[in-house]
Design a protein around this nucleic acid. Sequence first.
DNA 1: ATGGTTGAACATCAA
Length: 259
Amino acid sequence: MRIATWNVNSLRSRIDRVEAFLARHDVDVLAVQETKAREDQLPLMGLQAMGYDVAVAGVNQWNGVGLISRVGLEDVQVGFEGMPGWGEPLAAESRAIGAVCGGVRIWSLYVPNGRKPHDPHYVYKLDWLQRLREAAGSWLDGETALVGDWNVCPTDEDVFDPAQFRNSTHVTPAERAAFHAFLEDGYAEVTRKHDPGYTYWDYYRQRFERDRGLKIDFVLASPALAARVTSAFVDREERAGAGASDHAPVVVDLASVVE
DNA sequence: ATGGTTGAACATCAA
C-alpha cells in the first residue's frame, strides 16, 4: 500500500495537480492539509471517477485537512479527543481528521503554525501538540500513522539557514521537544532515512529554485506500522513550475500484510 | 529589519 501526505495550499486551486499526482504515483491514500474548502465546495467528481473516497474537515480558509482513499475510508473522526480549538470564528476549524484506510488508522494533521515565538498562536501550537501526544499515546498499539504538516523543523539539518531562523517559530527548543516527545513515546519518523530532503519552500524569493527550504512534513508510524515501511520519498518535481503548492508531497510505501 | 509570493471571506489576512 502506498500512502502520501501533502499540504496542497488550497484543494480547489490544486485539484488538477492532485489528480495527476495520485495517478502518476499510483497512490492509495493521500492525506491533504490546507484544503481551504468545505466538502460542498470541492470538485470531487474527478477523484470519485478515479475510485477515491474523500473526507474533509475544517470550515475556515486556512486550516482544513482531508483524506483521499481508494482502499476504504472507515470510522472517520474529525479532531481528536481534547483537541484545543481557537477563538471564534475559528472555533469550528479542524486541523485533524482520522480514518481507517486499508486497515491502517491514518491521521491527516495540520499543526498550528505558531506565527512567532510567544505569540498566542505559538502557545496554542504547543498546547495542541501536547494534547495530540496525549491522544496518540493510546493509538500506539495498532497500525497508526500521524502524517502531515508538523510546522516544526526537528533539527538544524531541516532548515536551509539556521542562523536566519534563530528567532523564528518552527525551530525553538520547545517546538523541537514537542516533536521529539512523540518519538520518545514510541512513534518512528519513517521518511527521513529514505529521503532527508526539504518538503517546503516559501513562494518568496525563488526559494525552491535555490533549494532554500524546510523539512516540516513528516510521517510518524506506530511500531507495528513502522515495521511495514519499505521506502519513502519527497516528490520534489511536484513543487516545480507554475501552479505548484509551496509544499511537496511525501510518499511512503508499506509492505503487504503477510497472512 | 524588511521584503518578497500565493490563496482566500479578497484590499486584508494568513502563511
